[in-house]
């Protein structure tokens, strides 16, 4: 059945139009769909989000091999890109299996096999997002997040601080240590407040970055074993003879050589009371 040139061109034009329409719809939908919500945490070893969306084929092998009801594949109801694996820390955090079965199961490398120690995972970063809501910051004893943290005593520590309200008590506040937190989310899952005040956030949201030109002198010095710039010269005042500089004594003062002033009581007595009043 021969097809006329006219029909061929018409068919092609129709197909091209349909395709362009579908493409336009898809691109805008994909833009929306690939902006991962902060509450969706990727499994351990997941590549950076953009690379992950290129690599993950949504097979669910990681979900099948997860021994806990933690991981699931996103449906159209979830905000994560359709079919991709994620977990919601508040519902069920990652239990941090020693053998990391989800990473082993991934056939495409979307979960990076270079991750061999679960303690090195960076699924996100826990942050106390609301110190007002956290009861520990209000002076109550809690420390639940500290106690459930799998990187025991490292990723979350409890710091003792002065309770300014009562003036005499201590606050025992949880502090997240960036270097050790894996973002497993057990703290968020366990947080006792109605809405968790400690939350696991994607690294991108939880961290900032200063420009490379900021060098911390004390760190550079330690790194190189010596100061990289000329060391500071001890400052010397160029003062008139017989004077010394002391701010508490309001600037230039005479150096007393009178030995009678060695007595502290005499010193106090010699002070002009009017002078003191003026200061206030």
């Amino acid at each position: 059945m021969a097809i006329s040139r006219r029909d061929f061109l018409l068919n092609s034009a129709r197909a091209a139009t349909t395709t362009t329409l579908v493409a336009a719809g898809l691109v805008s939908y994909s833009h929306y769909s690939y902006s991962l919500p902060a509450s969706a945490i990727r499994p351990p070893g997941a590549l950076e989000e953009k690379d992950f969306n290129a690599a993950c084929v949504r097979c669910g092998l990681c979900v099948n091999d997860c021994p806990y009801p933690t991981l699931s594949l996103a449906t159209l109801r979830d905000d994560a890109a359709l079919g991709t694996p994620f977990f919601t820390a508040r519902k069920a955090g990652c239990e941090m299996c020693e053998d990391i079965p989800c990473v082993k199961a991934c056939p495409t490398g979307a979960l990076n096999k270079n991750l061999t120690k679960i303690e090195d995972a960076k699924m996100g970063l826990a942050r106390i997002v609301d110190t007002k809501g956290c009861i520990a910051y209000q002076g109550l004893r809690c420390e639940v997040c500290f106690n459930v943290c799998p990187i025991s005593g490292k990723a979350i520590t409890v710091e003792m601080r002065h309770n300014d309200r009562s003036g005499k008590h201590a606050l025992f506040v949880p502090v997240v240590n960036y270097d050790h937190c894996t973002g497993c989310g057990k703290c968020e899952e366990a947080c006792i407040t109605e809405e968790a005040v400690i939350k696991v956030l994607p690294l991108k949201l939880a961290t900032g970055k200063r420009q490379d030109h900021y060098k911390l002198g004390w760190e550079e010095k330690q790194k190189h074993g010596k100061s990289l710039v000329t060391p500071d010269v001890d400052h010397k005042y160029n003062l008139p003879e017989g004077k010394k500089y002391d701010l508490q004594g309001e600037g230039l003062i005479d150096i007393k050589t009178d030995s009678s002033l060695d007595n502290a009581l005499d010193t106090l007595n010699s002070m002009n009371p009017l002078f003191d009043i003026k200061r206030k």
């Binding site: 018409l10 197909a15 349909t18 898809l26 939908y29 994909s30 969306n53 290129a54 359709l82």
Partner: peptide, 29 residues
């Protein structure tokens, strides 16, 4: 007017869009 050749256009589109967006776009739908 939906020609049975349209599928090849969509096939090409899914690959081109994957390249342009850097994500597996067709899997969304």
């Amino acid at each position: 007017g939906v020609s049975n050749k349209t599928r090849y256009w969509l096939l090409a589109m899914s690959l081109i869009l994957a390249y342009l967006t850097g994500t597996i776009v067709w899997e969304l739908v």
